Amino acid sequence: MNNSGTTTRLLMGILASQNFTSCLLGDRSLSRRPMKRVSDPLALFGGEVQLAAAGTLPAVIRGHLLHGANYQLPVASAQLKSALLFAALLADRPSRIIEKLPTRNHTEIMLRQFGADVKTNGDREIIVHPAKALVARTLRVPGDISSAAFWLTAGTLVPHSQIRLSKVGLNPHRTGILKVLTRMGANLAITQRPADGEPIGDVVVRRGHLRPITLGPADIPDVIDELPLVALLAASVPGQSNIRGAGELRFKETDRIKATVAILRQLGVTVTELPDGMVITGKPDWQITDPVFDSFGDHRLGMMVAVAALKAKQPLFLANSAAIDVSYPRFFADLARLRR
């Protein structure tokens, strides 16, 4: 699985229903991430997943026919939900999955496009009927809004900027970063394009005049991957910003709360670390204490530092920059093109 938590958790849901045994391995970072949050609910469907003593990879999955189940997610996690949707799709009877809070619904949209019987009841209940077969389709995959978020942030921070992001995914459960940027006063123009599946469109971002923001638990699921960037934006705005209800960040490629706080403090910003977030007292001019930053082996934090360097008044240096290749191997090439 290398470094991919999404691949791991989704495959656990798929492999649990097969007629063979599988073993999933990860790199050092992925092997520290919690997997009981998937293996435990899969057991309610009859799944057999044996993890390491710490509840981490490697995972031995003894596949067999699963049974349908009713399950209420204890955390707002699209990865966990999607793993259970795949398991339910291959079970012997219908299943009912209830979310704690609505999360991104890419899996539900995709499965319907391939002919699966997946229905939603309200904004948190999903009913899945087993599928004997799916139907092949040709799909357009929109640009990833989580990758686009780095350019949205850069365009907001850097004077005289104007960046157009074309054919970006505008799924309402993924546009939390656009909503947060709008609330902070960013200068955005969004144009929808015709689509028969995932919503898609163009976004133009220009330098904006930002204000502090407060985010709570209800805001977090739609912006969970972009929170380090929100923190970076808050760090550049005079006043106090609060991020709460984001405890899930501690279980990413690294503890993103702890690491983000460390990066912001290195920029000379006052930050209070909380169990589920942080309080940031921003300022327009950073006093950088040490120009050598670490990605902590986390692709998103590495790109966050690169965006911060666009605003900094002195050169910044990034250690462990190869981590960025996990999700965006062309990042530095695109950055160089934008700076021409």
Rank of each mutant, 00 (worst) to 15 (best):
N3S: 15
G13W: 01
I14S: 03
A16P: 07
S22C: 03
L25E: 08
S29D: 00
S29F: 09
F45A: 14
F45L: 15
E48M: 12
G55T: 07
A59S: 05
I61C: 13
R62E: 11
H64R: 12
G68S: 08
P74N: 04
A76D: 08
L80S: 10
A83C: 11
L89G: 04
R93F: 05
N105L: 09
T107M: 08
F114Y: 10
D117Q: 15
I127V: 15
I127A: 04
H129N: 15
A133V: 10
A136E: 10
T138K: 14
G143E: 08
S147L: 14
V158L: 14
S166R: 12
M184Q: 05
G185W: 05
R193E: 14
R193K: 11
P199R: 06
P199C: 13
R206S: 12
H209M: 12
L210W: 05
P212T: 03
I213A: 09
T214D: 08
L215G: 11
L229C: 05
V230C: 06
A234Y: 01
A234F: 03
Q240C: 10
N242W: 00
I243H: 02
E248M: 14
F251R: 02
A259M: 05
A259P: 02
L264H: 05
L267W: 01
G277M: 09
I280H: 08
T281M: 11
P284A: 15
T289W: 00
P291N: 11
D298W: 00
A308W: 02
A312D: 07
K313A: 15
Q314L: 15
L318Y: 00
S327I: 11
Y328E: 13
